[in-house]
Nucleic acid binder design. Structure first.
Length: 573
DNA sequence: GCCGTTTTCGGCCCGACTGTTTTCAGTCG
C-alpha cells in the first residue's frame, strides 16, 4: 500500500510551504490530508481508482489530483518543484523545539542558514541579534532547543512512557489541592508512540499544584511555568505538560487536552454549527456554559454519543457518534487467555507452570505455550523430540491445575523458502500453531508475502504472529503486502495477531481495523518471555480498541469451549 | 487547499506562555 508514502509526501509539502511562508490554511490543508491518508484503513490505490477518495472530507480536487499523480508516477511534481526552491536542510530545522517556520525563514533569507550546522554557527555569532524580534533570550532558547534536538531519542513507545506518566499522576494526586487528575493527550488515546506526556488537574489552587509539579523528584528542567500551565523535562528527553483548570471545567478540559487536534477541530465545527462555542473551559452559548463538568455532557450537548479516547482521531468516529453507531469496544476484562507465551524451554525466563499461574492470577482461563521451533537456534528453538517431551509436561501440568488449561502450541518459524519448520504430522497434534517470520527480513515484497501466504495455506497454522515484523524505533516492517495477506487469511480462516509487546504492537491500529473489515479473525497476544510481560496485554487491547475492535472480533476473548471449536475449524473444513 | 440548509467567496479552533514588544508575533498543543 502506498498510503504511508503519500502521507509522508503531503507532510513534506506542508513543511516546505510553511517555511516559504505560504498561506497557513493551505499548509494546514496538506497536513490534514497527510493525517487522513495515514489513518485510512483501506488501500488508497483502491479508493483512488474507484473515485471514493474525493468523497473523503478534507480531500478535495487539489489533493486528490496529487494522490492520483503519485499513484501513477511515484512522484508529486508540485512537491518536487517546491522542494527544489528551498535548501534541503531547512526541513529538519522544524524539529528543533522553539524554532518555527517564521524564524527558520528569517534565518535563511537574512543569514543564509541552510542546515543544522549553519544554524549552530549563526547562533555563535552576533549578527543574529540584529534580526527583528531577536534578543539574547530567544537566541539562548534556540540554542537549548538545538541541544535538546540533538540528544532526543525521537518518540518513545507507549510502554515506556505510560509508567512514568502514571507515577506522576500518583505523586501529584496525593495533594490535598488536587481534586481530580488524569493523563490526557496521546497517552490517554493509547497511541503507540508518544512525544510528550499531558497531565490534567482540576484544582482551585493552581499555583500550589504547579509549584509541586515543577519540584517533583524526577524533574530535570523547568521549561515554562505560568499560572495555569507548566512544562518540565524528566528522564532525559521526555517532556511533561501540566494544565490546571477549575473543577467546573473538568469535562471540557479533558476533551480539549485529550485531543486529537483533528478530533477537536471537528468538535468545534459542530459547536459552531449549533450556534455554540467550545474551548477548554466549557461549551458555551453566548457567555453561558451549557456543558463543562463531564466529557459525557459535552459530547451529549453536541448531539454525539460518548467517544472513547482511543477513537478520537477523526477517522469516522464523529459520523458514527452522530448516528449512535460507535462500536462497543473490547475491554481488558474481556480477554480470557493468552495465545502466545514462551517458557524456559526456549528463550523464556520462567517455567510453563509459572507462566500458567501468572495467567490464572490475571483472571484468564487458558494460555497456550508457544516456544520457538528448531531453526531458531539463537532462541533455543525446540527440536521435534523436545517439543514432544514438552507436550507430555503440559498434559501432566493440566492434570494438576484447577480452573485453568494450558494449550499445546508452538511459534513455528516460516522459513526463507516459505515452508514451516515442523512437519504437518507434528503440527496436527498441537492446539495452537502460531507461525512467524524471524529471518530473511530483506526479501522482496513478492518473496516475503509469498512465504506468509504459504503459511496461511497450511491448514495446521492457526495464527500469523507479528505479521509485519516491525520494531518501533528500530526496525521497519518487512515488505509484506498486507492486503494480500489479509484477503488470504479471511479466505482460509487463519487469524492475524496483534502482538502486544510495546515495541511491536503489530498489527497496528489501522491494520487491525482493515483486517476486521475484511473479516479476518484477530488474536491479541503478549509474546511474553516472563510473567511480568503478561501485563502488556493492556497495550494490545487498547491497540485493538484504536482499531475499532469489539469483543466478538477477538478470538481470545472467547471461552475455552468456543475457542476450541474455532481451533478445530481446519478439521471440519 | 477545502468547504458551503445563511456562503462558490471568504472564512478556516482557540488560548497560554515567552520574549520582544509600547500592542504583538511566534511557538506550541
Amino acid at each position: 500500500m502506498k498510503n504511508e508514502e503519500i502521507s509522508a509526501a503531503f507532510q513534506t509539502l506542508a513543511d516546505v510551504l510553511e517555511i516559504k511562508g505560504a498561506n497557513a490554511f493551505r499548509v494546514n490543508a496538506y497536513r490534514r490530508a497527510s493525517r487522513i491518508v495515514e489513518g485510512l484503513s483501506a488501500d488508497i490505490a483502491e479508493l483512488s481508482s474507484s473515485g471514493a477518495v474525493r468523497e473523503i472530507p478534507g480531500i478535495g480536487e487539489g489533493t486528490a489530483t496529487l494522490i492520483e499523480e503519485y499513484l501513477e508516477t511515484g512522484k508529486m511534481s508540485a512537491l518536487e518543484d517546491e522542494r527544489k526552491s528551498i535548501p534541503k536542510g531547512l526541513i529538519e530545522l522544524l524539529e528543533v523545539p522553539g524554532l518555527g517556520p517564521k524564524t527558520i525563514g528569517l534565518l535563511w533569507t537574512k543569514l543564509n542558514v541552510r542546515s543544522l550546522s549553519k544554524l549552530k554557527r549563526a547562533l555563535r555569532g552576533d549578527k543574529i541579534l540584529e534580526l527583528p524580534g531577536m534578543g539574547k533570550k530567544k537566541v539562548e532558547n534556540i540554542r537549548a532547543g538545538v541541544t535538546a534536538y540533538e540528544s532526543r531519542s525521537g518518540r518513545l513507545t507507549l510502554g515506556v512512557v505510560l509508567p512514568i506518566g502514571r507515577r506522576i499522576v500518583e505523586e501529584l494526586g496525593r495533594m490535598r489541592e488536587v481534586k481530580r487528575i488524569e493523563l490526557a493527550g496521546s497517552v490517554r488515546r493509547y497511541r503507540e508512540t508518544i512525544g510528550d506526556i499531558d497531565v490534567l488537574v482540576a484544582s482551585t489552587s493552581p499555583d500550589r499544584v504547579i509549584e509541586a509539579f515543577t519540584h517533583l523528584e524526577h524533574v530535570e528542567e523547568v521549561l515554562a511555568a505560568g499560572s495555569t500551565k507548566a512544562s518540565v523535562r524528566v528522564s532525559g528527553a521526555l517532556q511533561v505538560d501540566l494544565r490546571v483548570v477549575e473543577p467546573a471545567s473538568w469535562g471540557a478540559a479533558l476533551v480539549y487536552f485529550t485531543g486529537s487536534a483533528d478530533h477537536n477541530v471537528r468538535l468545534r465545527g459542530l459547536a459552531i454549527d449549533a450556534g455554540l462555542k467550545l474551548n477548554e473551559y466549557a461549551l458555551l452559548k453566548g457567555e453561558r456554559a451549557v456543558a463543562s463538568r463531564t466529557e459525557e455532557a459535552v459530547y451529549s450537548r453536541l448531539g454525539l454519543s460518548y467517544v472513547p479516547p482511543e477513537l478520537r482521531e477523526d477517522r469516522g468516529e464523529i459520523e458514527a457518534a452522530m448516528k449512535d453507531e460507535l462500536p462497543d469496544l473490547i475491554e481488558l476484562g474481556d480477554v480470557c487467555g493468552d495465545l502466545h507465551v514462551h517458557s524456559d524451554w526456549s528463550d523464556g525466563h520462567a517455567t510453563i507452570e509459572d507462566m500458567a499461574l501468572a495467567c490464572r492470577r490475571r483472571g484468564y482461563r487458558y494460555m497456550s505455550i508457544n516456544d520457538h521451533s528448531k531453526s531458531l537456534g539463537i532462541a533455543h528453538g525446540l527440536a521435534i523430540e523436545r517439543l514432544e517431551r514438552q507436550m507430555e509436561e503440559v498434559d501432566a501440568l493440566n492434570a494438576r491445575l484447577r480452573n485453568f488449561t494450558v494449550l499445546k502450541g508452538t511459534e513455528v518459524d516460516i522459513l526463507s523458502d516459505g515452508n514451516v519448520d515442523f512437519p504437518d504430522e507434528l503440527l496436527e497434534r498441537l492446539d495452537v500453531v502460531v507461525a512467524s517470520i524471524h529471518s530473511g527480513f530483506a526479501q522482496s515484497s513478492d518473496q516475503i508475502t509469498g512465504r506468509i501466504l504459504s503459511a496461511i495455506a497450511n491448514p495446521n497454522v492457526d495464527i500469523i504472529g507479528h505479521p509485519t515484523g516491525r520494531l518501533l524505533g528500530s526496525r521497519e516492517p518487512y515488505a509484506v503486502d498486507l492486503e494480500r495477506v489479509m484477503n488470504a487469511a479471511a479466505e482460509s480462516g487463519t487469524a492475524l495477531e496483534i502482538n502486544a509487546y510495546h515495541e511491536r504492537l503489530d498489527l497496528n491500529d489501522t491494520n487491525a481495523r482493515r483486517a476486521r473489515d475484511l473479516g479476518v479473525g484477530i488474536v491479541i497476544s503478549t509474546d511474553s518471555h516472563r510473567p511480568d510481560d503478561l501485563d502488556s496485554m493492556e497495550l494490545g487491547v487498547h491497540t485493538a480498541r484504536r482499531g475499532w475492535l469489539r469483543r466478538a472480533d477477538v478470538l481470545n476473548a472467547r471461552t475455552l469451549r468456543s475457542l476450541r471449536s474455532w481451533l478445530r475449524r481446519a478439521d471440519v473444513r
